[in-house]
């Protein structure tokens, strides 16, 4: 493995596919996307196979993730929000598992690519817009004209609301992407220090002793990255719930 901290984000083609000039190859990224889906599905289906009245460890975990996402969605979008539950749950599990799978050394982190997180956030905003207009029609535009504001203030408030709405998919996707990217680069850099110090000539016995410091740092950052993996998946989910709430209740 090269020492370049950027190498871990490289996409390599496993099965080259080319359709009409578009490169649709099955890449390592695609492999890990499919693996994420497979792992989530296997986890939820195998753990609930027993349908135990008293859950075992795995079933408990599956129920916990269900309740967790359900509570998050219900608390920000109310009971009507539960119609989006499969979407929100799939998003949470996909992002969480993609992040966690990425924590394995030599594994590819799907969410460290902006196009993936951007596609997911466009899916969210697209759902919000389609559902919002389908359910409320033009009243959905009330989102940009909050009630209780003096009419003259709409000149100021509406552009701000529009900009805020348009920046949502960007902030949603960049937050996740940047967190995963930066975390993995940091990990790689500190891990690289360990190797460099061990291999360094001229330091003698001092090299391995010095190498302990970046090693400790790597361990600490690994722990932090596990936290960030979960936290970013959660943040993505919470924001999704809040945006969906706008689609359900556009008049603030």
């Amino acid at each position: 493995m090269a020492n370049n901290p950027i190498d871990q984000f490289r996409i390599s083609e496993l099965v080259p596919i080319e359709v009409g000039g578009l490169n649709l190859s099955f890449t390592n990224s695609a492999l890990f996307m499919v693996a994420t889906t497979a792992l989530v599905a296997a986890f939820l289906i195998l753990s609930t196979g027993g349908r135990g009245l008293v859950p075992g460890r795995w079933q408990s975990l599956a129920e916990m993730s269900y309740e967790f996402v359900a509570n998050t969605l219900r608390s920000s979008a109310g009971n009507e929000g539960m119609r989006f539950f499969p979407l929100v749950f799939s998003l949470f599990m996909f992002v969480l598992f993609a992040n966690l799978i990425g924590m394995f050394p030599y594994f590819f982190t799907v969410t460290s690519h902006i196009i993936v997180t951007f596609a997911l956030s466009l899916l969210v905003i697209g759902t919000v817009m389609v559902y919002g207009f389908a359910k409320h029609g033009t009243k959905f535009l009330n989102l940009f004209a909050p009630a209780g504001v003096p009419p003259i203030m709409y000149l100021l408030v509406t552009p701000i609301e529009v900009i805020s709405f348009l920046s949502r998919p960007v902030s949603l996707s960049v937050r996740l992407f940047a967190n995963m990217l930066a975390g993995h680069i940091t990990l790689k850099v500190f891990a690289g220090f360990v190797v460099s110090l061990l291999a360094a000539d001229g330091l003698g016995a001092f090299g391995p002793i010095m190498a302990i410091l970046p090693l400790l740092m790597t361990i600490a950052i690994t722990a932090l990255e596990f936290l960030v993996s979960f936290l970013q998946a959660y943040v993505f989910t919470v924001l999704t719930c809040m945006y969906l709430n706008d689609a359900l209740h556009p008049s603030h």
Partner: peptide
């Protein structure tokens, strides 16, 4: 790489959504 990633993300996430 975007086209391929979007395609496979759609496939993987669509499958996940369907299974869920």
């Amino acid at each position: 790489t975007y086209a391929s990633q979007i395609l496979w993300l759609a496939i993987a996430f669509g499958l996940l959504y369907w299974i869920m």
